[in-house]
Nucleic acid binder design. Structure first.
Lengths: 299, 299
DNA sequence: GTAATAGTGTCTTTCAGACAGTATGAC
DNA sequence: GTCATACTGTCTGAAAGACACTATTAC
């Protein structure tokens, strides 16, 4: 085989939110993200992934965006010298659903893989343990110690620094370097491991989604056609791993005129029944990415 | 050759700003973006591109980020059936410099390729022409007309909509669909064309940079070690294609404590001499991506 | 003096953030 | 009535946006 030829693989981070839990589609009993080779029948990368995902989940993918492309030197018995495996990963969002997946494919709560990322009930107890071990790790390398301590402080919000929920990948990479996850050789690592670098790809996807949700109305891709405001808020909270302020959340949603009342009321309330809303897709697509406010004033 | 194997190519959108002009590195007299095949000697995608770029420009690449990965069905005489060319593009930023490049590689003003993207001297006259032709194009398809008119209004800021400098790719794609650029077959298209889809990749890079500069201090990667505030502002203006408000720009820069005085003064002034500043890389790396403010209030 | 650029002060508007309150259902 | 959830009103402080002003050089 000539050099310069490579095998290409598509990997999907497919997300849904069910009953306040963020879920990711997996295969092999939660050990792998779904992936498949790029086939010649696929018209484009995105089309290939979209067709494949809809086949697996029987739901339309509302939103699909490219995440990252990795390349590793080819491994395995049939790898040619100089050949690589190129992995192209995508983030996909699907509407909340009750179907449990198929035998091969299952939804898993993503906080099984990253328990320390869930800040909804306050700082996870596990975090103190993790930070202690990271600080020990920093101390083992006098030359790098200061640098490492700064990274830990920034990524984990210690020493008065604030927790930044977007830094999912930075936290995972620190833990990987320090040998605190199973993928880096540690038998008793934190969180549930995945095959190869799949947990790293999932971290990339979570980070992207947490960042994106702040300036693009992508959360509606995770919602059913009609929903209550509390339901919407709980979905965002599940993604961000944070509790949000109710009245401010509501004000922001309707300041941007993102939704409208359906006229119906929710049936399943234990308190006062809630109004149902729907996403105003047309309006938002027109004015669209208006979230991009530039903090630099024109003249 | 077995199916499922593909050729991989690295493409760089390499940006510098010289004397208030944003420049992109090209080869073939400005007709192509620099690109090279992924070689087996390259340790990783990023390392391959970085080594290659530094070899070409003799400058360290301060900032390098992946842009997008494309796949086309293999073309050309030696393409195997089912083989594809996978193109992985990167955005790189280098410090302003005077060197004119090499014989093979040259810097070009990116507004040669996208003259309608320069809003610094007000709305480019060319825009009225473009919008007229786009509206004509919309009218040719009654079924799609409304949809197309909405896209034009949004992307080009017509009919009372605001100009959004980030929508570089959307504008190029509309013009491509309407046959207003040479790449889609029009002999007298707007702007300078490039080979294959290179101008589309450049549009992707410009859009990414314009968006990024608003919440990450990446402009300093384009600056020399010391610079005046006006110099910094003109660099950002060159990228954004907009004029900025002087005193607000300055306030924002020092509110975030991004820079510090060197103590020196600029020599080349025609008016009052300006203080020189340097970027506080350490501080910013520590507090870093603090730009990510979430417009959703925690509780 | 003029021209040109450097740099400061401050007013207004907007909006995130926080808090407290009222409304309507089940029991 | 209590409890739970739904929903509204308003105060405060920070920061964007806009405008006007003073400062220091070359000529």
């Amino acid at each position: 085989m000539p050099t310069g030829f490579n095998q290409a693989e598509l990997i999907a981070v497919l997300v849904a939110v069910t009953a306040g839990s963020p879920r990711v589609m997996t295969i092999e009993l939660g050990g792998s993200l779904p992936s498949g080779n790029l086939e010649s029948g696929h018209h484009s990368l995105q089309a290939g992934l979209r067709a494949w995902v809809e086949d697996q989940t029987h739901h339309p993918v509302g939103y699909l965006e490219q995440l990252y492309t990795f390349a590793d030197h080819g491994r395995g018995p049939d790898a040619a010298p100089g050949a690589r495996r190129i992995s192209i990963s995508y983030l996909g969002l699907v509407h909340e659903q009750s179907s449990a997946g198929t035998a091969r494919a299952e939804w898993q709560d993503w906080y099984d893989y990253f328990p320390w990322e869930d800040y909804r009930d306050g700082r996870a107890g596990m975090l103190d343990q993790i930070v202690t071990r990271l600080n020990d790790w920093a101390a083992t390398a006098p030359a790098l110690c200061d640098e490492r301590l700064r990274r830990v402080q920034y990524a984990f919000g210690t020493n008065g620094a604030e927790w930044n929920e977007d830094l999912v990948l930075q936290r995972y990479e620190l833990m990987y370097e320090a040998g605190l996850v199973a993928e880096s050789g540690q038998p008793q690592g934190f969180g549930r491991p995945m095959m190869a670098d799949h947990r790293r790809i999932l971290a990339t996807g979570i980070a992207r989604l947490r960042a994106k949700i702040k300036y693009q109305p992508v959360m509606f891709e995770l919602m059913p056609d009609s929903f209550t405001l509390l339901h919407l808020q709980q979905t965002v909270e599940a993604i961000a791993g944070l509790r949000l302020h109710k009245s401010n959340f509501r004000r922001q949603i309707d300041q941007h005129a993102l939704i409208e009342e359906t006229g119906e009321m929710s049936q399943e309330s234990r308190g006062r029944p809630a109004k149902l809303f729907r996403y105003r897709r047309e309006v938002v697509e027109a004015r669209a990415l208006a979230g991009s406010r530039l903090p630099i004033s024109r003249d």
